[in-house]
Write a protein that binds this DNA or RNA. Sequence first.
DNA 1: AGGCGGCACCTTTTT
DNA 2: GGTGCCGCCT
Length: 959
Amino acid sequence: MTDPQPNDQQQELIDSTDGLYLVDAGAGTGKTFTVTRRYANIVSQNDVEPDDVLLVTFTNNAAGEMKDRIVGNCHYGMRDLADAPIQTFHSLCHDVLEEHGHAAPTYLGIDDRITGSTRIIEDELVEQALFEEFIDRFSDDHPEYDDVFRALSNPEDLLGLVNQLAAKGVFPDADGWYRDGERHLDGDFAAFKQQFDELNESRNGGSKQSLLRSKLGRYGRNKTYLPDAPEKSKIRGSGKQVPDDIAQLVFAEDRGELKAFVHDVYHEYLRFALRRNYLNFGMLQLFAFVLLCENHELREEVAFEYVMIDEFQDSSEIQFKLALLLAGTNNICVVGDWKQSIYRFQYADVANIVEFEDRLGRFVEQLNSDHERVSFPTSPITTIELVENYRSTQRILDFSEHGLRVPAANRDDVDVDAVDDRIVSLESNADHENTTIEAVQSDEEQEAVLAKIQGIVGNEDYRVEDEDGGLRAPEYSDVAVLTRTRDFGRELLGTAEEYGLPMAYEGGIELFRTDQAKLLLAWLRILEDDVDRGWAVVLERAGYALDEIDAVLEREAYPENMVEFCEELQGMETLGGVARCVFARYGYAGPTADVVLHTLQSVHNATTQTRGDLIRFIERAIEAGSTHEVHAGAGTNSVTVQTIHATKGLEYPIVILANMNSGRFPPGGSGGGVISYDEPNGVRQRKIYSEEAHGLPHVYDNWQADVLQKCSPREYDEERRLLYVAITRAESHVVFTAGEDPNTFVEELPVEVEEIAPDVTERTQKETEQTPLQVEMPVPEGPRGHTPHTLMHDDVFEDVEGGRGTEFGTQVHDFAEAYALGECVEPRNTDEAHVKQLIDGFDGDLLVEEDAYLPLSVDGDRVTISGIVDLVCVTPDCVEIVDYKTDRGRHGEEEYRKQLSVYYHVAREVYPDREITASIFYTETGSRHEIDPQPIDDIQRLVEEVEPPSGGVSEAIDQ
DNA sequence: AGGCGGCACCTTTTT
DNA sequence: GGTGCCGCCT
């Protein structure tokens, strides 16, 4: 993608290693390239080692890519960089806590410790369940907060508040707030007043009331305020503006009890988590921050000589502050693009980059208030702008700027001049100006998208750059459809399958909300005698009207052909057979059906789940909207469908920006009885409880919080940035599509909207290339009770899970399995030769069980398994557990030790009379290291915390 | 201009 | 349950 020779700005950044740098690196300006070169340049200095240089990325994938690319252009190899601090904030914090932070909670007045086995909760649903348990208990233990709880509709929402405060750096200590945390909770009246005044400007030169006054037109509507709440006329005043003193009136509210409540929930939740031996992502940063803030010696020990942060627009407030604590010198370089900040829901704070200088000064001042923690000067800051764009044509780049200027809703008025001041325009270095920008509108939007794709593929009007720098007609794989929501993408995928158009979804998708999955669920229910719910769906699908369905269900007089089909299904022995049969009946031959089938099979095959279990599995997946990562198979020629959020950093010659319809945004308000935190309003409770009620409901709306909320201007900035991100994915062609009701974006962008009546050509699947999809599945569970698989699955040993399956490793494992199975395979490299030697080294005949889990067939002499552990050799006297490692150094032996220890203890229970050994086999050198298993107590404690599916380890062994 | 009743609508995703 | 929007009225 990028020219191997850096341009002038890139070179300047690569060479400027010392001092403070703020880099505005717009889309497609070769940011990764430049950052990796700069890194190489820094570590090429004699006295600098990779350990001295912190390079922060925001995803693990990005960290891996950085490493790969650094290896390509500096004298360090992958092995030297394996442990180098090129990682996410979260993993860095994890490392710091693991190594030095066991006592970190004591700084917040918490006695419980972080231990080596403290696990990180990654699954949102798992944490929600834990928090619900906590909050139930908390409300029981604290009758003094009954009033607060009475006024909360969903106490479990408090987890969101806690996480938000953690991302802001607001932490509770034993009897108050850590450092100056309380200031955030109180809010900032001056900043609030400024917002208030801006929204309270009268309009049309004074002839029209202010926006704020207009919004307050509904003050009190559908509300129950306490009798002492001011009248609407007092709040709104009689002129065109809300009276000035209302600002102070609504801001001043005694929130002492509320703050105490939030504090206690927060603090006790931290304690709860530690007692249950887990941390969430926010807590990792929280404790790491406190530790680095309080332990001056440690901070200086950990501090890095160089700090670089990539995608800085995605960082949160606490991450900015963490970076300052981790920097030992002012050699700090932040690289990012405010225009691509679209992760506010993930606590990203665009102000970090937009107001970098201001925040840097302010944060350092705060950190140094009682002790000099940051000792370097905060100026000068050098700004470098990367403006040369290697991705898109100039017309696309110019057009993309309009995305930041157009209103995102009718009420949105953009300060165009202010936006323009901020934008650093990009310059294309494309060789061609093969650009089209168009917009289409149709009542049948999905068909319009498909018709448009058919019109594009093979069409010389949409030529794209080929591999040699020339131009060629586009293929399916040159086109990406970007949408705001997964829903639209999923439905589009379904429609594309109907027409036989090759299309593949990339990213997380709610797989079980597809028609395919729902119909399969319906038939499974019929087979399982959950008759009505099953037949209703099946009949509806067959075109029966609602009253007809009712009649059929009541008389149980099902259509004959369907009953026959049902009997056919009943004769099926396997789930796979049933699914295939159902899909065939409905003509589902596309990739979605494949993925559903594959996913269900991998859950089903590996377990003894009954059909009923499976039904519940699907039901839960639908209800929770749980997503499964799907990828198009490599080298397939199909259109990509993605959400805009999932597409960041990627590029496509042709981008179709679909679902440009109104009514979807802006974000709706948050429910009724909530405690919320807003800047600069501080913490507020929307409903309150009062004893003063007489014959009225005891829960009242909080009029002050209501007015405050209306004072906050609606932020559409991120909506516009989302549009910008989408447009800048395109190399040369952009098509907007909208349905019946186009949104303001399509209306206001300088592009003519063409109304079309789509005419999609239907094709059979055979004419188009099939697009295999791969789905990332969690490790399948063992047969019953606890096996290593269920333990891994329940995230007890999740930190090891990420280490599996490098491509190279997989090859070796495949070889080992094939060789053990007696297939004629020759080792292709030294790693495989070593594995062959290892297997040959065992005496006797090999009895192989593929995909087997413990307990293994005890009668056999030895068994290989291709589960989590690679080889288990069972003889009358001993059991040898061996795990191949091809990527020595990627993870420490300690991590593998946990994984093997689980197997060790399970094996010891299965074969109590044999000697058990567990070892790691490094395929590269052919050396085998027996590990010293972790004590059973540690394992046991972890096991106890995980609810076994049924029975426990011993039950699994009995079978 | 604007007050007001009534109706429809209601995400994104990574650590 | 907040809000955008329409229609109708003052």
